[in-house]
Measured scan of single mutants.
Amino acid sequence: KELVSALYDYQEKSPREVTMKKGDILTLLNSTNKDWWKVEVNGRQGFVPAAYVKKL
């Protein structure tokens, strides 16, 4: 599985998104959309802005 690192804090703005803190390591589930990537963090799945994470 592919991992990404959070470059910035992000506070979810809808139920489809997830909150992350800078430095968090997230499991990348889907990166086909260039703007929003689906990740899993702390057992929750949702979307984060692609520009806020980088692949490890």
Score class of each variant (00 low, 15 high):
residue 1 K to M: 13
residue 1 K to W: 13
residue 2 E to D: 11
residue 2 E to C: 15
residue 2 E to G: 10
residue 2 E to N: 12
residue 2 E to S: 12
residue 2 E to K: 10
residue 2 E to Q: 14
residue 2 E to Y: 12
residue 3 L to C: 13
residue 3 L to W: 13
residue 3 L to G: 04
residue 3 L to P: 04
residue 3 L to S: 07
residue 4 V to D: 01
residue 4 V to A: 13
residue 4 V to Y: 15
residue 5 S to V: 15
residue 5 S to H: 13
residue 6 A to F: 01
residue 6 A to N: 01
residue 6 A to R: 00
residue 7 L to R: 08
residue 7 L to M: 10
residue 7 L to T: 07
residue 7 L to G: 03
residue 7 L to Y: 04
residue 8 Y to M: 12
residue 8 Y to I: 10
residue 8 Y to V: 12
residue 9 D to P: 06
residue 9 D to T: 06
residue 9 D to S: 09
residue 9 D to F: 04
residue 9 D to N: 09
residue 10 Y to P: 01
residue 10 Y to Q: 00
residue 11 Q to I: 15
residue 11 Q to V: 14
residue 11 Q to P: 07
residue 11 Q to R: 12
residue 12 E to N: 08
residue 12 E to T: 09
residue 12 E to I: 06
residue 13 K to A: 12
residue 13 K to E: 08
residue 13 K to Q: 14
residue 14 S to A: 09
residue 14 S to F: 07
residue 14 S to G: 13
residue 15 P to Y: 10
residue 15 P to K: 11
residue 15 P to R: 10
residue 15 P to S: 12
residue 15 P to I: 10
residue 16 R to G: 15
residue 16 R to Y: 14
residue 16 R to M: 14
residue 16 R to W: 15
residue 16 R to I: 13
residue 16 R to L: 14
residue 17 E to N: 05
residue 17 E to C: 08
residue 17 E to A: 06
residue 18 V to R: 01
residue 18 V to N: 04
residue 18 V to E: 01
residue 18 V to P: 01
residue 18 V to T: 06
residue 19 T to Q: 04
residue 19 T to V: 03
residue 19 T to Y: 04
residue 19 T to L: 02
residue 19 T to W: 04
residue 19 T to K: 04
residue 20 M to T: 03
residue 20 M to S: 01
residue 20 M to I: 15
residue 20 M to F: 11
residue 20 M to R: 00
residue 21 K to P: 00
residue 21 K to R: 13
residue 21 K to G: 05
residue 21 K to Y: 10
residue 23 G to W: 05
residue 23 G to L: 03
residue 23 G to N: 07
residue 24 D to S: 06
residue 24 D to C: 07
residue 24 D to R: 02
residue 24 D to A: 07
residue 25 I to T: 09
residue 25 I to W: 05
residue 25 I to H: 05
residue 26 L to R: 00
residue 26 L to G: 10
residue 26 L to F: 07
residue 26 L to Q: 00
residue 27 T to H: 10
residue 27 T to W: 13
residue 27 T to F: 13
residue 27 T to L: 14
residue 27 T to I: 15
residue 27 T to N: 08
residue 28 L to A: 01
residue 28 L to H: 00
residue 28 L to E: 01
residue 29 L to M: 08
residue 29 L to Y: 04
residue 29 L to F: 04
residue 30 N to V: 09
residue 30 N to K: 07
residue 30 N to H: 08
residue 31 S to G: 11
residue 32 T to Y: 10
residue 32 T to D: 15
residue 32 T to G: 10
residue 33 N to W: 07
residue 33 N to S: 10
residue 33 N to Y: 09
residue 33 N to D: 15
residue 33 N to A: 08
residue 34 K to Y: 08
residue 34 K to I: 11
residue 35 D to Q: 12
residue 35 D to G: 09
residue 35 D to L: 14
residue 35 D to C: 14
residue 35 D to K: 13
residue 36 W to D: 01
residue 36 W to L: 04
residue 36 W to E: 04
residue 36 W to M: 06
residue 37 W to R: 01
residue 37 W to A: 04
residue 38 K to C: 14
residue 38 K to E: 15
residue 38 K to G: 06
residue 39 V to T: 00
residue 39 V to H: 00
residue 39 V to C: 06
residue 39 V to K: 00
residue 39 V to Y: 00
residue 39 V to E: 00
residue 39 V to W: 00
residue 39 V to Q: 00
residue 40 E to L: 07
residue 40 E to W: 06
residue 40 E to A: 08
residue 40 E to D: 09
residue 40 E to Q: 08
residue 41 V to T: 11
residue 41 V to P: 00
residue 41 V to S: 12
residue 41 V to A: 12
residue 41 V to G: 09
residue 41 V to I: 15
residue 42 N to L: 08
residue 42 N to K: 09
residue 42 N to A: 10
residue 43 G to I: 02
residue 43 G to E: 06
residue 43 G to H: 06
residue 43 G to F: 05
residue 44 R to S: 06
residue 44 R to F: 07
residue 44 R to C: 07
residue 44 R to Q: 08
residue 44 R to Y: 06
residue 44 R to T: 08
residue 45 Q to I: 15
residue 45 Q to C: 12
residue 46 G to R: 02
residue 46 G to V: 04
residue 46 G to N: 00
residue 46 G to W: 03
residue 46 G to Q: 01
residue 47 F to G: 01
residue 47 F to N: 04
residue 47 F to P: 00
residue 47 F to I: 07
residue 48 V to Q: 00
residue 48 V to F: 00
residue 49 P to K: 04
residue 49 P to H: 03
residue 50 A to W: 02
residue 50 A to C: 07
residue 50 A to M: 05
residue 51 A to I: 11
residue 51 A to H: 13
residue 51 A to D: 11
residue 51 A to V: 10
residue 51 A to G: 13
residue 52 Y to F: 13
residue 52 Y to P: 02
residue 52 Y to C: 15
residue 53 V to Q: 00
residue 53 V to P: 01
residue 53 V to D: 01
residue 53 V to R: 00
residue 53 V to S: 00
residue 53 V to Y: 01
residue 54 K to L: 12
residue 54 K to I: 14
residue 54 K to D: 10
residue 55 K to P: 13
residue 55 K to R: 14
residue 55 K to M: 13
residue 56 L to N: 07
residue 56 L to T: 09
residue 56 L to E: 10
